[in-house]
Nucleic acid binder design. Structure first.
Lengths: 132, 132
DNA sequence: CCTCCACCTTACGTTAACGTCAACCAAAGG
DNA sequence: CCTTTGGTTGACGTTAACGTAAGGTGGAGG
């Protein structure tokens, strides 16, 4: 109704996933769409979470790890103990991601060198590459 | 013999993997250890490849994608056509990795904010965090 | 000679993350 | 009223990336 509500189909269209995927994520408690009768309805926060899920997957996190991280994004009225654990978990993840970024930076530089080399080899063999 | 040769056990020790993993990678044609009778022997280039494999996995690449990438790291006397394809594949991966790096940078900043916020909340509740 | 150890192959088991299929409901349109 | 459209819940299938268990080999040491 209000355009803040989306059906499962619209969600799939928007984010390039299948219904099965969204239902699966719900079953794994990564998202919590509300129900109108039988049907699922997704609101803004669901979309925010989904974005984070898809991003997390690109970084190589498992769905379970992502589920933990998502709690960081909906911190509210939890017990202090739980909150502290979540915080520390977040710190760990942050270190992970920073490490990963450094490695990625190196790997990119490396790959770039290889490609440069490949270019010259191909040039030597008289191959014209699509200029870009 | 020469310390440039390593047994499967030594490899596992060095890189924190299981024998099964190395045999699996060989079966998938990601590494090509030489044989002394039955036994596998790993030389320097095998170790270089293994490093790249493990790194690639951290970036979320599948073994099959990694296998493609590895060809870039052993370009030699292949046909020019194949070489060109490999080169273009490498370019694609490079774009992927650069994109991933940007996203990762954003995600890190984001997570950092959350943690900062979490810190203040915990501080308000009188929780002392391990200073670092 | 026997045993242990490190390695081997073959083959079936496992987990994550969905895909696919069957059978069902409910609102909307012709 | 019937059919289409878009959703639902099981339940079983699939792929990647290994784990694991069973049984076999070859050399070193007691």
């Amino acid at each position: 109704m209000t355009d803040s509500m989306m059906t499962i189909g619209e969600m799939c269209e928007s984010y390039g996933v299948t219904p099965r995927t969204l239902r699966f994520y719900e079953a794994k408690e990564l998202i919590f769409p509300i129900r109108e009768g039988q049907k699922r309805l997704f609101i803004k926060s669901d979309r925010a979470r989904l974005k984070l899920i898809l991003q997390g997957k690109r970084f190589g996190f498992s769905l379970e790890e992502i589920r933990q991280l998502l709690n960081l994004y909906s911190l509210g009225d939890q017990q202090t103990t739980q909150l502290t654990k979540t915080y520390e978990l977040g710190l760990e993840r942050l270190r992970d991601m920073e490490t990963q970024r450094e490695e990625l930076t190196e790997a990119i530089a490396d790959l770039r060198d290889r490609l440069q080399w490949g270019e010259t080899v191909l040039a030597d063999r008289g191959v014209k590459l699509a200029a870009e």
